[in-house]
Design a protein around this nucleic acid. Structure first.
Length: 584
RNA sequence: GGGCGCGUAGCUCAGUCGGACAGAGCGUCGGACUUCUAAUCCGAUGGUCGCGGGUUCGAAUCCCGUCGCGCUCGCCA
C-alpha cells in the first residue's frame, strides 16, 4: 500500500505545483523521521522559496492549500509543519494493507516478465568451502531470492572452473601423489579427501628441485593443452577430480541452504567452439593488438590501462576469454545476467564488460555486484594453504551452540507445548543456520568483515533468532486464538492504538523494501527491515493482547494483524534464506 | 605509485541518489516473568559521522585535498 500511497502523494504535489505554476522536476517526497506522525512528506518548499520570493513555510502552506485529500484514496489529510508538507494515511490505507497482508505471498511484487540468471559462488572446485568464501553463497542466494520476490523469473547458476591452470595442477597432483604420503583428511568426504593432493601439489611446485618442477610443469601444460585441443581423455581425467570435489562442496552449500538450478562448466565453451569463435571475433576488432606473441585487447578507450590478453602465445584461451563466451550464452537465454563476485575480481569484471561491448553486446543486460572478503582476525583464508575456517565447522558449531541454548531455556519455558527431541533438532538447525546467514547477509556487501566466533553466533538482538522469535510468537498467538475460537478479521476501524497502527504501517512498507533492495541488489536492506519490523511487533505484542482484548471485534482484528505480521516476517526471512520457526 | 572500495558511540553495524534533533545492538548501570513464549521489553550511559577545505537555505550524505585500512595492477582464476 505504501507504493500506492507514494504515487498519490507524488501526484498530489505535482498537481499542486502545476496549479501554482511552479516547476515539478523535483517533488522532494521523502520519509519523515520516525517520531513524526506523517507517513510521507515533501521538502519541495525549500527549493521553491527563492523562486516564489517567500519563506519556505509560506510556500509549504500554499502547496498544502492546493491539495484536496478527498481526491485521493489513501491520503487522509495534508498539513504543514514549518517548511514541510506532511501527508497522513487514511483508514482505507490501513484496511487495504491488512487485507493484502493476509495473503501468504505478501511482499511478492507483480511479475516483471523478465528472466534473470543469477550467477554466484562459482568457487574453484579445489577444496572445502571456507568461511572467507561463504559470503558469496549467502549473499548470492539472497540476491536470487530477492529478485524472485521482485517479480522476476530467476535461475541460479554456478559457473564451474574446470579448465584453468589450478585445475590442471590439481589433476596432475591427484594422479601423481600417493595417499600414503598425505595427512588424514579432516572429514570423510571427497572435497576434504582430494584437497590434500591439491595442497601437496602446490607445496611441491614451490619447494621441489628445479628439474622436478620443470617436469611437473610439463605435465600440467599437457593437461591444459589437452583441454584446449578437445581431447576426450583429458576431459575425463579432469572431470574425475572436479566432479568429486564439487560434489563435496555442494553438500556444504546445501546446508546453508544454497542450491543451484544449473552448474555450468567452463569447458563447455571450449568444447562447443564458442571460445574459439570469441577469439576470432576479437582479433577482428579495432581494439585487438598482437604483442609479445599473444593476442590482447587494448582497453584504453574504456579507461582501463591494463591490456586484456585473450589468447596466450601457446594458443590456449584464458579464463576471461571463456567467460566471454559464457556471458554471450547467458545474454542469449536470459533478459538479464547478474553476477555476484568477490572484490578481487573487480578489474577482471570491468575488462569482461568492456570486451562484451566490443563484441557488440548490450551490456545493460549485465549487472555485476561485489562483496568484500571475510577475513580472520589473524588474516586471510586460503584453500591452497589450508588456512581458514571451513564452512562445515562453522555450521556445526553454530547448530551445536543453538542446541545448547534451546536446552538451557527448556526449564524456564512458560509455554506448555512440550518440545520433543525432533523439535529441539529442528530449532537448533533453524536458529544455528539462520544466525550465520543473518550475520553475513545483514551487512553491506562492500564492507569488509572480520570473522569472530562470538559475534557470528550471538543469538540475542539484531540477529536471526530475534526475528525468528517474532514469527514463533505469531504462530503461538494464532494457535491459542484458534483454540479460543477467535476468527481473524480485517476490520481496521477497531484498531486505533499507536502500537497497532505502527505495526500496520510497517507491514505496509514491506513491498517497497523489496522493491528498493532488488533495484540495488542489496538484501541487507531487507535484513534491516526485518529487525526493525520485529521491534515494532514486540511493542505491539507487549501492549496489545489478542486473547485478552477488550472485546471480540478487537481480538479478531488484532488476530488479522498478527497474521499479516507473520506473513511479513516469514517472507522477509525467506528473502534472506532463513527459516521461520513455528515454535522455539 | 595508479585504479577501486571502506572509515559513523568503547565494540559490531544501519543511515550515504542533500533535508525535520545522527539511529540500533553489544557492553556498562538500573528496572519488568501468577500475563498470547523473557531468544522479550523499559530506562540510563555513550558520537569532533577519520581529518581539512569547498558547494548549498541545509552536508554523515555531493566536490577537492589529506591520512589510515582492504582489494587490485599475471600469457592465474
Amino acid at each position: 500500500m505504501f507504493r500506492a500511497f507514494r504515487s498519490e502523494v507524488a501526484a498530489a504535489v505535482e498537481s499542486a505545483l502545476t496549479a501554482l505554476d511552479l516547476p515539478t522536476d523535483d517533488l522532494g517526497v521523502e520519509e519523515p523521521p520516525a517520531e513524526m506522525p506523517a507517513t510521507l512528506a515533501s521538502s519541495v518548499a525549500f527549493r521553491l522559496a527563492s523562486e516564489v520570493g517567500a519563506p519556505p513555510p509560506s510556500v509549504a502552506e500554499d502547496v498544502a492549500a492546493e491539495i484536496d485529500a478527498d481526491d485521493y484514496e489513501y491520503v487522509a489529510h495534508v498539513d504543514t509543519q514549518g517548511p514541510y508538507v506532511n501527508f497522513y494515511v487514511s483508514e482505507a490505507y490501513y484496511a487495504d494493507t491488512l487485507t493484502a497482508g493476509r495473503d501468504e505471498a505478501y511482499g511478492e511484487l507483480p511479475a516483471t516478465g523478465k528472466s534473470v540468471v543469477v550467477e554466484h559462488t562459482s568457487a574453484n572446485p579445489t577444496g572445502p568451502v571456507h568461511v572467507g568464501r561463504a559470503r558469496n553463497p549467502i549473499f548470492g542466494d539472497a540476491v536470487a531470492r530477492l529478485l524472485e520476490y521482485a517479480g522476476n523469473d530467476v535461475e541460479t547458476h554456478y559457473y564451474v572452473n574446470d579448465a584453468g591452470r589450478q585445475i590442471a595442477v590439481f589433476t596432475w597432483a591427484y594422479e601423481t601423489f600417493d595417499e600414503s604420503e598425505l595427512p588424514e583428511p579432516e572429514r570423510d568426504r571427497a572435497d576434504y579427501d582430494l584437497v590434500r593432493y591439491y595442497r601437496e601439489g602446490n607445496a611441491f611446485l614451490e619447494s621441489a628441485d628445479e628439474a622436478d618442477v620443470a617436469a611437473a610443469e610439463a605435465e600440467i601444460a599437457e593437461i591444459m593443452q589437452g583441454l584446449e585441443a578437445g581431447d576426450e581423455d583429458t576431459y575425463e581425467r579432469v572431470a574425475t577430480v572436479v566432479d568429486q570435489v564439487l560434489g563435496g562442496m555442494r553438500t556444504s552449500l546445501e546446508r546453508l541452504p544454497a542450491t543451484f538450478d544449473e552448474f555450468v562448466k567452463e569447458t563447455t565453451f571450449i568444447r562447443n567452439g564458442d571460445a574459439d569463435e570469441i577469439v576470432a571475433r576479437l582479433k577482428e576488432s579495432d581494439h585487438a593488438v598482437y604483442e609479445e606473441d599473444a593476442w590482447q585487447l587494448d582497453l584504453s578507450a574504456f579507461d582501463l590501462e591494463k591490456n586484456l590478453v585473450f589468447l596466450r602465445s601457446d594458443d590456449t584461451t584464458l579464463y576471461t576469454t571463456r567467460d566471454l563466451a559464457h556471458h554471450e550464452w547467458k545474454f542469449e537465454h536470459f533478459d538479464e545476467a547478474v553476477t555476484v563476485l568477490g572484490e578481487d575480481h573487480k578489474l577482471q569484471a570491468e575488462q569482461l564488460e568492456a570486451a562484451l561491448e566490443i563484441l557488440g553486446n548490450d551490456t545493460d543486460q549485465l549487472r555485476q555486484t561485489f562483496y568484500s572478503w571475510v577475513n580472520l582476525p589473524e588474516g586471510g583464508m586460503s584453500t591452497r594453504e589450508g588456512t581458514g575456517v571451513d564452512l562445515d565447522d562453522l555450521l556445526d558449531e553454530s547448530v551445536q551452540r543453538a542446541r545448547e541454548e534451546v536446552e538451557d531455556r527448556l526449564d524456564s519455558r512458560i509455554r506448555n507445548d512440550e518440545l520433543d527431541e525432533a523439535d529441539i533438532d529442528r530449532i537448533a538447525r533453524q536458529v544455528g543456520l539462520g544466525a550465520v546467514r543473518y550475520d553475513i547477509v545483514s551487512k553491506q556487501p562492500t564492507k569488509g568483515i572480520t570473522f569472530e566466533w562470538e559475534r557470528a553466533l550471538d543469538f540475542e538482538a539484531q540477529s536471526a533468532p530475534y526475528v525468528q522469535y517474532v514469527h514463533a510468537r505469531c504462530c503461538g498467538i494464532e494457535g491459542e486464538a484458534a483454540d479460543a475460537g477467535i476468527e481473524p478479521s480485517a476490520d481496521v476501524s477497531v484498531l486505533d492504538s499507536d502500537a497497532e497502527l505502527a505495526l500496520l504501517e510497517d507491514v505496509a512498507r514491506f513491498p517497497v523494501v523489496i522493491e528498493r533492495a532488488a533495484a540495488d541488489l542489496e538484501p541487507h536492506v531487507v535484513a534491516t527491515f526485518a529487525r526493525e519490523f520485529a521491534e515494532t511487533f514486540n511493542t505491539f505484542y507487549r501492549e496489545c493482547s489478542v486473547l485478552n482484548a477488550e472485546d471480540d471485534a478487537v481480538a479478531a482484528a488484532r488476530l488479522g494483524l498478527v497474521e499479516a505480521a507473520r506473513h511479513t516476517v516469514a517472507n522477509a526471512l525467506d528473502v534472506l534464506g532463513i527459516e521461520a520457526p513455528e515454535s522455539m
